[in-house]
Design a protein around this nucleic acid. Sequence first.
DNA 1: TTGTATGCGTTATCAT
DNA 2: ATGATAACGCATACAA
Lengths: 315, 315
Amino acid sequence: MTVSRALREPDAVSSRVREKVATAVRDLGYLPNRFAGGLAARRSRLVTVIVSGISASVYADALRGADEVLRPLGYEVLISQLTETPEQEERAVAALLGWQPEGVILSGIERTDATRRMLHAAGVPVVEALELTDTPIDSNVGLDHRSAGIAMGRHLADRGYRRIAFYGARLDSDFRAFRRLEGLRAGLAECGLVPVRVVCSEAPSTPETGARFLRELLDDAAAPDAVFLSNDTIAMGALFEAQRLGVAVPERIAIAGFGGSDITAAINPPLTTIRFARREMGRRAALTLLDRIERRAPPGQRVDVGFELLARGTT
Amino acid sequence: MTVSRALREPDAVSSRVREKVATAVRDLGYLPNRFAGGLAARRSRLVTVIVSGISASVYADALRGADEVLRPLGYEVLISQLTETPEQEERAVAALLGWQPEGVILSGIERTDATRRMLHAAGVPVVEALELTDTPIDSNVGLDHRSAGIAMGRHLADRGYRRIAFYGARLDSDFRAFRRLEGLRAGLAECGLVPVRVVCSEAPSTPETGARFLRELLDDAAAPDAVFLSNDTIAMGALFEAQRLGVAVPERIAIAGFGGSDITAAINPPLTTIRFARREMGRRAALTLLDRIERRAPPGQRVDVGFELLARGTT
DNA sequence: TTGTATGCGTTATCAT
DNA sequence: ATGATAACGCATACAA
């Protein structure tokens, strides 16, 4: 018991004991067993994060932000990634709740009822990140993708484009892209426009898919003069294909993406896109979760991290 | 005890008990406490991964590969990311060993002696991934970055470039880039060449840094006719800056990167770079670790996942 | 400031 | 096939 104290609250023991323990720890290479500690203390010091169906760079930045906040406070961030569908997520949640997390961060808002029930039953604070919703399980940090779509619709209409198309990849799992599409419709409607073409593909989110989309656009009977693609990867794929085909961007066709990765600013012309603060979103998600874990705040916290439309050369 | 059995080896109990337990589990929303289970069984079913100082896309792909292998076998993959220096990694290893992992995957081969000692003392199987070494802690999966550098040196020399430069970003933490630089020197030496300029910067690995590097190259008294950059991000930054300045690539200056991300194939001209199988590397790391955990293989396993030089338009 | 008794929720082991 | 008992390694609560 004295050793346990010497390790966790060094000030509570005499300096003699403190040193003896420190020496022994070093000599033996002692490392506390977190299974035993967690079982006895009835707290895990664990926050689990489940990342579903979003691109590497988004979650890397967001996780970094969350980790920055939680680790210094003694929390371990257990990441279960790679879930693509709500059903896969459900299994991941079941597995992770066994680790008795003190808080859970989920990406997006799309999940099964069983997942919701499990989380409620576990009574664990939850933050759903990336996207705002009116019906969160508990708390919610992110941006309003519909508003982002509206902003893009207005932008394209303001710039004088009239025959606007939407192309999305991986729309079987990118639910947020649908919200942006809805927003695009709403933004265009303000100007009396409707999208002249909407393509929701399940193709992988790669530059090649973007290139194919561009070729389809050029052949399209609806003759779009601008296109909003569901993310930067396919938008850049489309832009580069246009350049290969000698198609002028934005004169012949304007191209816009979503995500705001660094590289979109570096290319020629730079890509019009929508950026949001990924790392800050991770930080805010962690902070909000901490407020809930430590009961400093009631359920239902809502943090809008906003977004920024970067109007650049491709529109 | 019967419940515990019904859950873990359903075939060992009667169908009557099996059903009763299943119903109760559902009604109660029971989830086994992994702290108690791990403590009692003296096994964690946990593999920890520590990712240090590598770019998001590399580790996302590699982690996906590792996860694919381990999760179906009942292992949880606990990821501690974000360590940049060997000292940070040391702290991460100390923290993670408390979770009694059955195996540990580390990125790279650069670490402190204390880290090595801890891992030895813990007696846990270790796979060092991403880079091959002659002195692994235990087992090793990756590629030989020096060979990759040699390949690039030969390629540039073969294409007729004679005034070759190397520019690296974040070289305070990207130890593998140094190995590639060594390889470049060796590859060029075969042709009687030496790099006309070597710049090892601690600047962030961003397209802007690449752009700055390119401007420096153009002003350089050594007048390089080709440059090997330490990764694709800065290489693309350099290429795009060249295009903005109206500098012909590869005629005026050839540009090569490292990494082999998808986007390098999509740009114009496509970037010469070196690709390796990230996901496969993750899978092989996990498989090798499993062989060690289950004592199917002795320490010292070595898996070379190889690489591929993609000779494209920028050289 | 230090130490003792007890329990955390599960599994290994050995009986029945 | 099922059950009783004793760990697992640590922290809580309380006593000295």
